[in-house]
């Protein structure tokens, strides 16, 4: 080991370029990890594909679907469930990101991110964007496979759905971030699965339309109606058919702002949970 000449002044001027490089550093790292972790890539696709090929095929005969917007004709159950499964990919991805945040915090690598000279809200937002980028990649691969299974949206729909996926991914990722600020240990993550992911998924319009739920239970109908995941799915569903669902957009956007603000507070050392649990 040998030492060179003296050191110069530090390089970091807090400018836009710094933010830009840091954000792409975080996104690039996340994408690289996702692409190189082949098992993660495959398992992220297997789940929705099993639902599409097995669950939807089985339920096709028992579930009659009336014509409801954005559909203009009778559709197969597989067609109905596809936007829900896109949402499912993003929901699980958001929770996976949350899990990796808890893991990173336990393992210590989260500390490196938190001690870099950028505002914490920006670092969290970059993490969120990285997770959303990964989830969008997964959704498009899923939609491509569904296309070969003859589940086809209008070609413009594949473009319109991009901003919808972006917002839905951000909202679900922000929820994951928020949860990760409360989870003390990795072992507690099973609780999140049981108390957040499953209720959120099953009490939504991912698998059955609202009017079907109303027939069964008014309470369930109301829970599903105000479930942010339902709104995100409806946003995706309409966008996939080239339509803009304004109420779903506003609701999803509002949910994103609420979750993100709470997550930022949760990760703020002076206000949040970080100092209370001794995490990094």
């Amino acid at each position: 080991m040998h030492l060179p000449e003296g050191r110069r002044a530090g390089p970091s001027r807090m400018n836009i370029l710094h933010y830009w490089r840091a954000m792409w550093g975080i996104i690039g790292r996340e994408l690289w990890r996702f692409v190189t972790q082949r098992e993660r890539f495959i398992s992220a696709l297997v789940r929705p594909l099993v639902w599409l090929f097995v669950f939807a095929a089985g339920f096709r005969a028992t579930l009659g679907l009336a014509i409801t917007p954005p559909y203009e004709t009778y559709i197969l159950y597989e067609v109905y469930i596809t936007p829900g499964l896109c949402g499912m990919i993003q929901l699980f991805n958001g929770m996976q990101s949350s899990l990796s945040m808890v893991y990173d915090r336990e393992m210590g690598s989260m500390r490196i991110l938190m001690v870099c000279p950028l505002p914490r809200w920006f670092l969290l937002l970059s993490k969120l964007l990285a997770g959303t980028a990964v989830s969008i990649l997964q959704v498009y691969v899923f939609l491509a496979i569904a296309w070969f299974y003859d589940i086809k949206a209008p070609w413009q729909g594949y473009l319109w759905v991009l901003p919808a996926l972006m917002l839905a991914g951000l909202m679900l990722g922000a929820l994951g971030l928020l949860l990760s600020s409360f989870i003390k240990q990795l072992e507690n993550f099973a609780g999140v699965m049981n108390f957040v992911i499953f209720p959120m998924f099953f009490m939504s319009t991912a698998l059955y339309p609202l009017w079907k739920l109303k027939e069964s239970s008014a309470l369930l109908y109301n829970l599903a109606k105000y479930d942010p995941f339902s709104q995100a799915i409806e946003l995706i569903r309409f966008a996939l058919y080239g339509q803009f669902n304004q109420p779903a957009f506003i609701y999803t956007l509002a949910a994103f702002i609420v979750f993100m603000t709470a997550a930022i507070i949760g990760y703020n050392p002076s206000k949040g949970m970080m100092s209370k649990k001794g995490g990094g």
Binding site: S12, R13, R21, W24, I26, R29, S109, C116
Partner: peptide
Amino acid sequence: QTTLDMDLTVMQNLRYHTALHGM
């Protein structure tokens, strides 16, 4: 504790850090 990403190379880990510092 080690705070390096085990699945990335030495170079990738260091590049990530330089990005966080805006280099």
